[in-house]
């Protein structure tokens, strides 16, 4: 087991080097803001996909309105930045908290619904939130959206230039994904998986299933809200169209393509579905058709996804699981 213990830090360090050194350095070589914008998009959607993964992949709740909570986060951050003159450091946590609060209110009555009914309810809630964003003109400025010019300021220092903004986004996303990783790769995560497999049986195992579902839905919305704030600050403009049903489906497609229940898969899915349309930009506006096609092909031919749950869990256990300490005994399938 000592061999595994030694290797435990390798993959996380490689990933951090990729996100914080290789990627920004390579992008800086191109010297174009556009590439950084795409990189930010990849990071933001990775966070969205991983937060949806927790609800849909791990806990098995088919959620068709995730983009709405992302939208709430974006609007909260943007409106606080413009109307209240409260900057990034206020807007970011507020975006997460308001999104989570909404999710909590929504989850309380709907969490008792099972499978397809739950999916329909989340779809309706997503549509309702989007309708409010579109029509509550007094607050959300309606279809015109909100412009956010202030940019990111951290403790009095303005974060200027695409590289610096990229670093801020990367820090928030990496920290959030680390938290989501701890949640899904833990005994708490196992309890969530048991909800997906057979929630009545989980109930008999002493697990408060309704409470756990509400909890995970709320947590996931919190991170979607954070992603929304990052979107608002990186693009400087939010409008209802960015948070509609097709965006919920885009995020769902990332999770499905990567593999339901697989956290690394969700990231792979996000990278693929953001980069593929950018790479294929020359072919015209095929972006959304691609999303549909990739989703369909993967459901049909790769029902377990590009990086299925079983191999993903084995990968995480082998390469990350030991990071937080050595095994107490020879046995170490568990999480720690």
């Amino acid at each position: 087991m000592s061999e595994i213990t030694r290797k435990g830090w390798v993959v996380p360090v490689l990933l951090l080097v990729l996100v914080f050194a290789v990627a920004p350095f390579t992008l800086a070589q191109f010297g174009k803001g556009y590439f950084f914008q795409v990189a930010n998009l990849v990071l933001i959607f990775s966070l969205l996909a991983v937060s949806l993964h927790l609800v849909t992949g791990v806990a098995g709740l088919l959620h068709l309105g995730h983009a709405a909570f992302y939208g709430i986060g974006a609007y909260v951050a943007a409106l606080m930045g413009t109307d209240l003159k409260l900057g990034f450091l206020w807007g970011l946590p507020a975006a997460g908290l308001v999104a989570a609060l909404f999710a909590l209110v929504v989850a309380l009555p709907t969490m008792r619904l099972v499978s397809i009914y739950f999916a329909v309810a989340t779809l309706a809630i997503g549509q309702m939130i989007n309708t409010v964003l579109l029509n509550w003109v007094a607050v959300t400025k309606g279809p015109n959206g909100v412009m956010l010019f202030s940019g990111i300021k951290l403790f009095g220092f303005a974060v200027k230039g695409p590289l610096a903004v990229y670093f801020v986004v990367a820090v928030v996303v990496v920290a959030s994904i680390w938290v989501l990783h701890r949640l899904s790769h833990s005994y708490y995560g196992n309890a969530l998986r048991s909800l997906r497999e057979d929630d009545q049986c989980a109930d008999a195992m002493g697990i408060d299933t309704v409470r756990l579902k509400i909890e995970v839905f709320t947590l996931s919305a919190f991170f979607a809200g954070l992603a929304g704030a990052l979107w608002a600050y990186t693009t400087g403009y939010v409008s209802p169209g960015d948070f509609n049903f097709s965006n919920s489906i885009l995020i769902l497609a990332m999770v499905v393509v990567g593999g339901l229940g697989s956290l690394p898969g969700a990231i792979v899915g996000a990278v693929l579905l953001i980069l593929l349309p950018e790479v294929l930009r020359g072919l015209g506006d095929l972006r959304n058709v691609m999303v549909g096609l990739v989703m369909f092909v993967s459901i049909l031919f790769l029902p377990k996804g590009l990086f299925g749950e079983v191999s993903a869990l084995a990968f995480v256990r082998r390469n990350l699981g030991v990071k937080w300490g050595a095994a107490p005994s020879e046995r170490e399938v568990g999480w720690r």
Binding site: I249, L252, G292, L300
Partner: peptide, 9 residues
């Protein structure tokens, strides 16, 4: 999800 995908396409 497959019918959703077909509808998007």
């Amino acid at each position: 999800m497959s019918s959703l995908a077909v509808s998007i396409v």
